[in-house]
């Protein structure tokens, strides 16, 4: 295994997800998602993780490997990921045994995959969550299984190649209160889960030029993604079948409910805009709410 001081080996975990953007979704009569009719794409949060990996490639010349667990069709997600981060390798963990996995069992599979990447991985990028699962636990659980430091909600990061430390900026929303921006530092290896608001920000001319060049290369590679792709079975990965797939999933989903819409408690009154008195009343109301006593 090579481990030159200034080499960064990065992995990205992505997921094939239904395209929930407008006009592309299909629902069953009971209101659940019609998976067979809905197109599958690289999940939007996974795409953000890919952009973060591209940043590592542009700024630190990182070697990047993308992995995904899913059915054979999930190679579509890997192809799209390729187009975003110009990966050097693609890995698909696909086996009937993996089916029905919850976040923990998925993390177990990915752990084995990352360990078998042929290079010692320094940094793993994951999305914030999936759009069809929403629990956002696969990232942290993978980090835990790998024994990597986990940094979540990351909106910006940099790596110090000398000290092999990653500096990350986290955005923590405290609902109803305020948003906290936190700068943290961690030694590598680490797993970074990107906040949905992450935007790659190339501030140097050389970075912009390198980015443009790599994006061209990325679309070239994406067309030829199969020659970068390796598909792994459970046996190839050497997983313990008790810890993956349905067997390895402690989560039991016993019921899915639609959240009932809360009844509106608002009352509306139509005000004639030409009636000055009525408008004044509206003005007073707004003023009282904004500045008056509660």
């Amino acid at each position: 295994m090579n481990h030159d001081k200034d080499v960064i080996n990065a992995a990205v975990m992505v997921k094939l997800e239904p395209d929930l953007s407008e006009g592309n979704v299909s629902y069953n009569p009971d209101g659940t998602l019609n998976r067979s009719q809905t197109k599958n794409i690289l999940g939007p949060h996974s795409a953000i993780a890919c952009k973060a990996a591209m940043y590592a490639k542009v700024c630190y010349d990182a070697w990047v490997s993308v992995c995904s667990m899913g059915p054979p069709t999930a190679e579509i997600a890997l192809r799209d990921a390729m187009g975003l981060c110009c990966a050097d390798e693609l890995h698909l963990y696909s086996d009937r045994i993996f089916a029905g996995a919850d976040t923990l069992a998925t993390a177990e599979t990915i752990k084995h995959g990352i360990r078998k990447m042929g290079r010692s991985i320094d940094i793993v990028f994951s999305g914030h969550r999936a759009v069809d699962g929403e629990t956002g636990q696969t990232g942290p659980q993978t980090a835990w299984k790998l024994g990597f430091n986990f940094i979540g909600n990351v909106i910006d990061y940099s790596i110090d190649l000398e000290s092999r430390m990653v500096k990350a900026r986290r955005k923590i929303d405290l609902p109803g209160l305020y948003t906290v921006i936190e700068d943290v530092e961690s030694p590598l290896p680490a797993l970074i889960a990107l906040d949905p608001s992450y935007r790659d920000n190339y501030r140097r001319v050389s970075e912009r030029l390198r980015y443009a060049r790599l994006m061209k290369e990325a679309s070239r590679r994406a067309k030829d993604y199969k020659s970068y792709l390796r598909v792994w079975s459970a046996k190839d990965l050497g997983v313990d079948v008790r810890y993956v797939g349905l067997a390895g999933s402690p989560t039991i989903v016993y019921k899915v409910e639609k959240i009932p819409k809360a009844k509106a408690s608002r009352r509306a009154k139509v005000v004639d805009p030409s009636n000055v008195e009525a408008l004044r009343e509206v003005g007073n109301l707004i003023f009282n709410i904004a500045f008056g006593e509660r």
Binding site: V205, R208, L209, A212, R213, K216
Partner: peptide, 16 residues
């Protein structure tokens, strides 16, 4: 122009 410039490590930067 970008293709030609890229050969020498140059290029175009949009939005600046």
């Amino acid at each position: 122009a970008e293709e030609e410039a890229a050969k020498l490590g140059g290029g175009i930067i949009e939005g600046v």
